[in-house]
Design a protein around this nucleic acid. Structure first.
Length: 587
RNA sequence: GCACUUGUAGCUCAAUUGGAUAGAGCACCUGACUACGGAUCAGGAGGUUAGGGGUUCGACUCCCUUCAAGUGCACCA
């Protein structure tokens, strides 16, 4: 559509002797109720033309129609110039752009971007909140790659700290040597179970101490279990062999479990970072900051940064005893990641409860003069809440990721069996399909929503398979494939004839795909792609219902509609791929 | 208390980044092929965009204000 913008610039220059930038022209899709495919808003030009918006629109429209052969007609309604582009142009777009292999393959932009996501704790299995994080991170990475970036997907695993020690301790005390092998339980669930047991026993101790007259606060501090856990942490930090061995063993169980869940979710990583390796980092940055005067030391020896001028608080960056806090560690890890990859941008996919932390972190790194700090971005997303409120691992009120996946698969099975279209599939093939459809429903459900909005998930109301859903789009794809399988494409191209509105609308929608990728990449929002591909599927379905493909009027029309179907299936598949969703050939 | 985020149809979400009469899906009602897959399509009903004020040719969008919800304001990570 650039040619229209260019000509409009010329038109304004010729007609009104004014220079305007291409960016000043608002070109948008024409609303369905009006004639035309693209619309120019003419209000901004009235200050040059000194005429009414209607008259300005008419004059520009006249100019464009005369100078561009692609424009077949125009009309002006209020300040909106609606332009109709001739069928030949759209048909040409289909054959020379959309059907080409490199359609929507954006040129490498020479930039490297890191996407950090998932970042689990090793003391509990993944739940619905993690699922949103993983799907978001993976999809954003896919979109950025499609937009021309070189992408590095990383996962910073929180594998140390007091919470891990709690699971370890509970396993030592109550585990009787249980292993994933002996119980058949998935490793992460086994470890998570002991985390819950710890909490239960710990609470019992607190109650007991309170009954002996201690306050809640005292009881929490004095409970033998918490003291033991703290001791365990000290031993871990001291590198005591037995503790480290147990830690390693239990971590192996957890990673094994996570690996299965990641595989089911279809996400992957190029590089893992472990907090057990990074938690001591950041101290040299403290020295750096002290020397440059960005940080200051208080009398007790603790190190701070004063951000009051930026409307924030004073923030501690190093304890008086010289040990790190979360911020110290994150500064160090940021530096480490940059040293490893020299990326231009770095995206942290982390929940919105950490908005403040990242605001401060990025600001500190900028103040320290790190040039790369400007490329840091916190992709903040809203929590997933249940009707009963927030999910709490310790209290067991979570929607477990593995359970959820299994449930989605079973719903997909029911729906598919009821329709009975794949009775000839083998067992394995069926299972694979149920997984594809179930995950399609779940992923689409989670990704179509703007990341920053919080999400309400009601486990009693299953995720839909009809309407604005993943399976709807998957179904459209399968149906196209089914039609294509019944015909032969000869490669014959149609002479430009008059397109039916449904055919033209479909091509128009298809041509928008590259722009959609760019938009989604700029906004880090898979929802843009999700809503687009739904729109595309709907547009195809409408075309499909209005026009017969295999029984078309003549062979030329049939071939044209087949090619249109090929293009639609291709774009649907590519767009869904950006969301991490597979599309089946049959379902 | 302060800061950040959110508030759109009964429910779940859109709205081309300031553009036309605010659009979809679910649920509800009506209808559609002896045709390529009915997980589909066409139509109906459903709105004071939380309330109020302002900016302008034009506001769901920007500014002010009130209200509601969530989150953060740890020498936890």
């Amino acid at each position: 559509m650039n040619f229209i913008i260019e000509s409009t610039v010329k038109a304004v220059k010729q007609l009104y002797q004014a220079d305007i930038a291409p960016a000043d022209i608002s070109l948008q899709e024409t609303r369905k109720e009006f004639e035309g495919q693209v619309t120019i808003v003419t209000f901004p030009f009235t200050k040059f033309s000194r005429k009414s918006p209607e008259q300005t629109g008419a004059e520009i429209g006249e100019y464009l129609k005369k100078s561009l052969k692609e424009i077949s007609a125009f009309n002006v309604i209020k300040g909106f110039l609606n332009i109709s582009i001739c069928s030949a142009y759209w048909i040409d777009q289909l054959y020379t752009e959309i059907l080409k292999d490199d359609f929507a393959v954006l040129k490498p932009n020479g930039k490297k971007v890191m996407v950090e996501y998932s970042s689990p704790n090793t003391n509990k299995p993944l739940h619905l909140g993690h699922v949103r994080n993983n799907l978001l991170g993976y999809s954003v990475a896919q979109i950025l790659e499609a937009a021309g970036y070189e992408v590095i997907k990383t996962n910073l695993v929180n594998d140390r700290g007091i919470h891990i020690c709690k699971s370890m301790l509970a396993w030592q005390l109550y585990g009787n040597g249980e292993t994933p092998q002996s119980t058949g339980e998935k490793g992460d669930h086994l470890v998570g179970k002991y985390y819950v047991i710890f909490d239960k026993e710990y609470k019992k101790e607190i109650e007991f101490l309170k009954s002996e007259g201690q306050t809640e606060e005292e009881a929490k501090k004095n409970a033998p279990l918490i003291k033991q856990a703290q001791e365990l942490l000290l031993k871990w930090e001291a590198g005591e062999e037995k503790v480290i061995d147990l830690w390693k063993t239990m971590n192996t169980w957890v990673y094994d479990g996570f690996g299965k869940t990641y595989k089911a979710l279809g996400v992957e990583f190029d590089k893992f970072y472990y907090e057990s390796n990074t938690y001591l980092l950041g101290k040299d940055i403290i020295d750096e900051g002290l020397q440059s005067g960005v940080f200051f030391k208080k009398e007790d020896g603790s190190v701070w940064i004063d951000l009051t001028e930026d409307g924030l608080d004073q923030k501690l960056v190093l304890r008086a005893d010289g040990t790190s806090v979360y911020m110290t560690q994150d500064m160090g890890t940021a530096q480490l990641k940059y040293d490893d990859f020299q990326m231009d941008e770095s995206i942290y996919v982390v929940g919105n409860e950490q908005d403040y932390h990242f605001k401060v972190l990025f600001l500190i790194l900028q103040k320290l003069g790190k040039a790369w700090a400007r490329g840091l971005f916190h992709l903040s997303y809203g929590m997933v809440d249940l009707p009963s409120g927030k999910m709490k691992s310790r209290e067991g009120t979570v929607v477990d990721a593995d359970d959820l996946i299994a449930e989605m698969e079973s719903t997909a099975r029911k729906q598919t069996e009821a329709l009975g279209k794949i009775n000839d599939f083998g067992e394995e093939e069926k299972e694979q399909l149920y997984h594809t459809i179930g995950m399609g429903a779940l992923k689409y459900f989670l990704l179509k929503v703007d990341p920053k909005k919080r999400l309400l998930f009601d486990p009693n109301e299953s995720v839909d398979f009809q309407g604005h859903t993943g399976p709807f789009i998957q179904y459209t794809h399968a149906r196209i494939k089914s039609v294509l399988n019944r015909a032969t494409i000869t490669g014959m191209e149609t002479d430009p004839t008059e397109l039916a509105p449904e055919e033209r609308d479909l091509i128009v929608t298809l041509t928008q795909f590259p722009d959609i990728i760019t938009q989604a990449a700029i906004a880090y929002n898979p929802g843009t792609v999700a809503n687009y591909v739904y729109e595309l599927a709907k547009t195809y379905n409408k075309f499909y219902h209005e026009h017969s493909i295999l029984q078309a009027e003549d062979e030329l029309v049939k071939q044209f509609r087949l090619e249109l179907s090929v293009a639609s299936a291709k774009v649907i598949s590519k767009a869904m791929n950006l969301l991490g969703i597979d599309v089946p050939e049959r379902m």
